[in-house]
Design a protein around this nucleic acid. Structure first.
Lengths: 344, 344
DNA sequence: CCCACTGTTGAGCAATTGATCGCCGCTCCC
DNA sequence: GGGAGCGGCGATCAATTGCTCAACAGTGGG
């Protein structure tokens, strides 16, 4: 309780709060009854809430982590966070997260939505659980090229196809590899109309469905052959902790220049920032630092994550300075540059 | 809980309620976020409250009886009820009630208020505790004549004087006895300008401060000599249980014709009904039936009462039929005749 | 197969609420 | 004593909320 109350104050607050919250009187009526002005009643009600005289408790299902979600949302200035309950093994954990993400998409998508889709094992699980109540006239667009060296259902094109199939929407494929040998080849590819059209559409998406990659030698970027283990080690030395669509960041959220950047065929960070709702889906247990870095980079709007990771990320964030204050300047959700020094 | 919820419904309600009550999102924002229309969010929030997902608890001081007040207010359709905590002995009980009533008056009275004041031991205690924060330019007007046979501080004139003294207001006395020998004398008195003026002003009061009398042989009406013990016994036989300003009612709230009615110098029930806020102050332990009858008669708007009486009145009311359904027709607080059959 | 009926939906509007602002009275320091 | 600063006050207005209503979908009965 932020302030102490005298006995008669306490009594008045309780009386007014009771009238308002239990009896559903209007502030106006209470004001008349108690001989106060309406704004004064408002202030008293405010005070009653702040002083804990009014105690609003949400009887939440025990498997929900609303407070954890709240803390993440506030710490990283996210629009939405969904924390799914813990599971004993990684496989069912991934499924639980994917189910939550699917539910979120079902709620979030409307006709004419355009969804940019990245690769990743977590994202790859989502279609299995995606079951909109009605047909959705959406477009699912690959935001990245494919790789034959990882499981097919992990490739953006496949994820798009599956999501489109289940919702009655349309899949827009990116017929290009995730990476090529030389920058020249990439530039050539980007000039191809089929490739350019798809990436242009992806860049205009309302929603982006993203995985967060780690920096271990088993991560998707390495397994897909995009980066060698040597290159990955070098990235780690440079401080990289994780990536979104191949864009690596350090633990403070600052971009880390990567050797493969100009060989990659995917949306850029700038493209992502312009997308209204960037949804990151994460379930793997070794990733809290990756998640922390990416969240701090400010590209993510919505996070779907398992409970252990959620707790780990917050613990890390508390350890080394609050939430997202990585750089001196970042983008706010609306996309303007804001000076951190003026923020709360 | 009036209805059962499926698991996912429960989850949605909890999520939305949390967003609304804990995060202070607007319904609009929640609707956008969850892909619902705003009215739908409103209905879901409603449901969350009704289903007990949202639990608003007022941390009331333990000495307040807000729920008891509520029940009285609802049962007897009162505008306001103040229940003061129980005391071991009648004397301090009366003081506690008087203190509550004084607090109420302090809140309720404004400059230019006109207060009609009745007699009674309970009302007589009020001035001692009446201490408005600032000078009040009110008029306190006797609503009844006086009697030398009861303690001076129990007479309306004295109560008025004391209240006026303590608030800086003005006392308007009724220079007449509470009762006379014959109706003719009363009528003659009522024609006297001094008497008529005072009663006319009292009839125009905003607030009436009333005691509730019982029907035992020790009640104020008998002690003041207005009624003989024989007459009182006859009244009891007729079913009378209590009075306000000498107007007796039975336990169902119906008026009981009394022998002294036309010898009495006081406001009539009709006058009382026209007064916006009729406040009854009761503390004596033997009076629950009197209070019940008077409340059911519908003249009272505000009740100030001790906790034991409050409980006793409610218990009695529950025993012999609900609250105030005494007669087929009664006045509502606004003063119009309303058909009880159309009420809730 | 059609139609009445019931329950649900969101548009639109009126009431309620939250927030800003200038004002007033108080205190405290000069 | 006088003035600056502060906190609380209520008028006022914009935002939010509650509510009504017409339209609609689903359902069961004719």
């Amino acid at each position: 309780m932020p302030e102490e109350l005298r006995q008669d104050e306490y009594e008045l607050l309780a009386r007014i709060a009771h009238r308002y919250y239990v009896d559903d009187s209007t502030q106006e009526a209470i004001a008349r009854e108690f001989g106060l002005s309406r704004p004064k009643v408002q202030r008293l009600l405010d005070r009653a809430r702040r002083a804990g005289v009014v105690d609003i408790h949400i009887q939440a299902p025990p498997w929900l982590n609303l407070d954890l979600e709240d803390e993440l949302r506030r710490t990283f200035r996210l629009v939405d966070v969904i924390v799914s309950p813990p599971r004993p093994d990684p496989r069912s954990q991934r499924e639980a997260v994917a189910r939550s993400a699917a539910r979120y998409l079902e709620r979030r998508l409307a006709d004419a939505s355009v969804v940019a889709v990245s690769h990743g094992r977590d994202a790859g699980e989502i279609p299995r659980f995606f079951r909109p109540e009605r047909r959705l006239d959406c477009a699912f667009v690959s935001a990245m090229g494919g790789s034959p060296r990882v499981d097919a259902p992990t490739n953006p094109n496949e994820i798009c196809r599956a999501l489109a199939e289940r919702s009655g929407g349309r899949a827009v494929m990116l017929y290009a590899p995730a990476y090529v040998e030389h920058a020249e080849i990439r530039d050539e590819l980007l000039r191809q109309e089929a490739v350019a059209d798809t990436l242009r559409l992806a860049a205009q998406a309302d929603v982006a469905l993203l995985g967060i990659g780690g920096t271990d030698d088993d991560c998707t970027m390495v397994r897909s052959g995009c980066l060698s283990t040597d290159e990955m080690a070098r990235l780690r030395n440079q401080g990289a902790v994780g990536d979104v669509l191949g864009n690596y960041v350090d633990v403070r959220g600052r971009p880390v220049a990567a050797p493969h950047q100009d060989r990659l065929i995917a949306l850029t960070v700038e493209d992502l920032r312009r997308i209204g709702t960037a949804v990151a889906v994460v379930s793997e247990a070794e990733k809290p630092r990756a998640v922390l870095g990416v969240l701090r980079s400010g590209v993510i709007d919505v996070l779907v994550v398992d409970e252990p990771n959620a707790r780990a990320v917050l613990a890390l964030a508390r350890e080394d300075g609050s939430g997202d204050d990585g750089g001196p300047v970042r983008m706010d959700p609306a996309g303007e540059v804001i000076d951190r020094s003026v923020l709360s």
